[in-house]
Design a protein around this nucleic acid. Structure first.
Lengths: 191, 191, 191, 191
DNA sequence: AATGAATGAGCATTCATTCAT
DNA sequence: GATGAATGAATGCTCATTCAT
């Protein structure tokens, strides 16, 4: 199935994502990952020099997927509120569609296995969010507040909403939840 | 130094708190914990039957410390807003004063090493928070909203604030940050 | 209950007999023995310098009980056949009445934990049996055969009979079994 | 030396046979076995999932060797007496040639480490002996006796003879001992 | 390139023995 | 004498990584 190297790397990372999330980093033998991915241990170590390299790759990839999804379609919105709400909804939908990625990020974002370099590289992809907030503050659509703090709080609120949805199973109207939760955060940051 | 059994248990739990946070559960040998606590491995296993028992004890203890600190002095406040703000400030101050406990809780709250029983027991101590929100909703001081979601979001926002403070080093005026961050969440939840 | 030292030694040896038989030597912690005997670990090590000393004491004691029981009443028999049959029945009855002692001896007679000295001391108590066979050979009641080999074979046949009885539960007429099994061995050794 | 997996398994089992016999099961570290066999601990656990699996394999193998040797050449004998004497001699010769196997079996045949399944499988190979006795009883060559008991006693007498030979060192004429000891048991069981 | 057998350092836990009380 | 808490060496087993094929 996985013929070329790129396919194998992808299969390994996918298997690792699920297994690390379910069993923890040290709780998952590399042999289990390679077996689950349908490749040999030797191949795993050809694709990723060490187990730590693997988890860092998975982490970066998950964060990249998240940031890419979050920014999608902002440019179509004209107002600051529209743009921020767009990211809010994108992010919730991505979380609901990618539960393993989300839980993986939550579990390993402050773990000792992810290097500072990986963290920084992954964070760069969220630059557009910081710029968006800055723009809102300059345009006086948002309060003159601590931009980093506001993003921190929005991010965690966002995760909280997704976790709530995931825990309570099937969602009838996700747009309703998005609307209502966005009202809460918008009230908090808007002028 | 640690003369009686209670002192030894405390020393072991303190050492485990720091090491587990910095190195992960499986990344921390019990021998390292016992050495760091100044006791023998044998003694560690007299105090805690297994390594898992130890981490569960540490988890419960950290959560208990957090809940106790969070509720301190609410009864002196008369308004709903005053009470909620009191818990908000308490929680941030506790986090800043107990960074290892906070990061430990963040890292292990959804790990497979913490049993459901431990989780439930620890959660019971936060009952007052749920009651406080209910009271606010009944008194129409708060929006008629999903109480659990609101607490989820407040909690994660609170952690976000503490992390921000910890990451940026020494804090000039913590009360200012508490005030400003509370405004954000209060705007979100209040009617 | 166990007030003086002799009582305590006896209680420890009795507990050790059962536990060693059921769980093996290294499979039985000294703490389990002392607890089962109702004394402290400290006391166990006051009574027996090491765990090996303990098992050697139990072994010697079991063998002594066996040899004492086996020789009982021989002097009342006049014929060689009567004397040998007396030991045969004594030995079977002792085995049926002391299953733990018998199985303990079987299990540890060729184990590395019993010293040669203990073996030799225990064997001395069976001297009367060797003399009995010699007497029978001299009196031409028995074949002129290898005395040691004959005893070896009788002993193992004896144990085989007891094990058979123990495995098949309650015995209706033990004297019948004794008679029949003795006929077999007597046919083997008698002239 | 041990190139393929089968060779390694054999080397490990051979080392385990000797060490278990000399030092007991729990008294023999797996590291000692692997070192003695010239393989790594990892390899030992690739060949045998657990230490208990290893000892069960050794036990089954020793019993199989014994049963195979014991039955060799019976078909060439025409009389019942000839057949039984053939097994008697085979068994003694095997014991003298395989002292470790014999003592291993003696030591572990009723130990808690050998599973019931292993016992039963190993016992099946001795079916021919039971049939031989039955045949002898039907043909009225043997007394109408308890077949199982007779085999029990013969087996233990056989072991006794081998032990005697081993204890007394070099054997001048093993056939003489076989003849004389067989007379004893044959007198016991024959009609 | 791909495999998977082999390695051996590392770790949770146990337990014989000691010794302060 | 009696106790039982404390010790820490010892052991079965795992698993990241290598490397011969």
């Amino acid at each position: 199935m996985a013929e070329n190297i790129a396919d194998k790397k992808a299969a390994i990372m996918k298997a690792a994502l699920v297994l690390f999330t379910q069993r923890g980093f040290q709780g998952t033998p590399t042999s289990m990952i390679s077996e689950s991915a349908g490749v040999s241990t030797g191949t795993l170590f050809r694709c990723f020099a060490t187990k730590k390299d693997l988890i860092n790759s998975v982490y970066f990839s998950a964060k990249e997927s998240m940031s890419r999804a979050t920014s999608e379609g902002i440019e179509k919105e004209s107002s600051i509120r529209g743009k921020i709400k767009c990211t809010w909804g994108n992010s919730i939908r991505w979380g609901v569609d990618h539960p393993f990625e989300l839980m993986f990020i939550e579990q390993f974002s402050s773990s000792p296995f992810i290097t500072d370099v990986t963290q920084e590289e992954a964070q760069k992809n969220f630059g557009f969010l910081f710029e968006l907030l800055d723009e809102g503050i300059r345009a006086k659509a948002l309060k003159n507040q601590d931009r980093d703090l506001a993003i921190y709080m929005m991010y965690s609120a966002n995760v909280a909403v997704v976790k709530k949805i995931l825990n309570y199973g099937a969602v009838k109207d996700i747009n309703d939840i998005i609307d209502r939760s966005f009202d809460i955060v918008w009230n908090g940051i808007a002028r």
